[in-house]
C-alpha cells in the first residue's frame, strides 16, 4: 500500500509478459504515440494516457483499464514503436493488457472485449481446422459486403477462379491454397495444447458463457457470438 492505494499486483502480472518489459521503460507523456495512432484518429482513444495509467502501478486504475473498452481500440499497427523518443512501445503494452484481461476474465465486461469470442470462433478455429488464419470460405460475402461483387463472383465460382491460377486449390501437396496434410494439422494442434493456445481458447469460451448468461442469453450460443460480431454502441462523436 502506498498513500492508501493498492499497488503492483497487476503491474507485477504484466511484468511476466516480455512484451510489457520491452514496451514500457519510462514514459514522459509527450504524446507522439497518440499523434501517429490510427486508432486515436478514429476512436476517443489516447495511447499516451493508457501508458500513463499503467506506469502509476495503481491496482484499481489498472483493473479499470482491464475491464474497459479502451484497451480494445488499438489496431496493433505498431506505428507508435519507431516514433517514441524514449523507446517505449504502447502497442506492446496493449498486447500485454489484453492478454491479462483475458486470463482474468475481465474482457467480457466491455463490448469490444466480448468480441474476442467471435475472433476465437472464426480465425482461431480456422487455424486449427485448416492450418490457415483465413480461407476463402471464411470471408463470407453476407458478412463482408465491403468485399464487393468481384469477391462474390470468386466465392461463387471458387474452383474455377482459383483453379485457373493455382491447381493445388484444396488439394494436398505444394502450391497456393493447398490443403494442409493431417500430420501437420496434428502438430499444430499439439503446439496449441502444449504452449497455452488451447487454454486461451477455453478461457475465452468459459468467460463468454458466464457473461452471456448474465446478459440473458442461453450461454455463449450462436446468437450471442453473432451479436458480439455485429453490435456497436460506441459513440465517437
Amino acid at each position: 500500500m502506498f498513500f492508501g492505494f493498492a499497488m503492483d499486483k497487476y503491474y507485477d502480472m504484466l511484468l511476466e509478459d516480455v512484451r510489457f518489459r520491452e514496451g514500457l521503460k519510462a514514459c514522459m507523456n509527450c504524446g507522439v504515440c497518440t499523434g501517429v495512432c490510427p486508432a486515436a484518429e478514429f476512436y476517443d482513444y489516447d495511447p499516451r494516457q493508457i501508458v500513463s495509467i499503467v506506469q502509476t502501478r495503481n491496482d484499481d486504475a489498472i483493473e479499470e483499464l482491464l475491464r474497459s473498452e479502451r484497451i480494445w481500440y488499438c489496431g496493433e499497427c505498431m506505428s507508435c514503436r519507431p516514433r517514441c523518443p524514449r523507446g517505449n512501445t504502447p502497442g506492446y503494452v496493449i498486447q500485454a493488457l489484453r492478454t491479462l484481461s483475458q486470463k482474468l476474465g475481465f474482457f467480457v465486461e466491455s463490448e469490444k472485449g466480448r468480441q474476442q469470442l467471435c475472433l476465437k470462433r472464426s480465425i482461431g478455429e480456422n487455424i486449427l481446422r485448416t492450418g490457415y488464419c483465413l480461407t476463402p470460405q471464411l470471408v463470407r460475402p453476407e458478412t463482408h459486403p465491403e468485399q464487393g461483387p468481384v469477391w462474390r463472383w470468386i466465392v461463387a465460382n471458387d474452383r474455377e477462379v482459383y483453379g485457373r491460377l493455382t491447381p493445388s486449390y484444396d488439394r494436398e501437396g505444394a502450391g497456393a491454397l493447398r490443403r494442409i496434410d493431417r500430420q501437420s494439422l496434428e502438430e499444430l494442434d499439439r503446439i496449441f495444447e502444449v504452449s497455452g493456445g488451447r487454454r486461451m481458447f477455453d478461457l475465452i469460451e468459459k468467460h463468454s458463457d458466464r457473461k452471456a448468461r448474465e446478459m440473458g442469453y442461453d450461454g455463449a450460443d450462436e446468437r450471442y457470438a453473432a451479436d458480439t460480431f455485429s453490435r456497436n454502441t460506441t459513440r465517437n462523436d
Binding site: D17, V18, R19, E76, Q95, R98, T99, Q102, Q116, L119, K120, I123, G124, I127, C133, L134, I191, F192, S195, G196, G197, M200, F201, I204
Partner: peptide, 12 residues
C-alpha cells in the same frame, strides 16, 4: 492474424 487479434498467445 490470430496473434494480433490477441487470441493466440505469444508462447504459441
Amino acid at each position: 492474424i490470430g496473434y494480433h487479434s490477441d487470441i493466440v498467445p505469444l508462447e504459441t
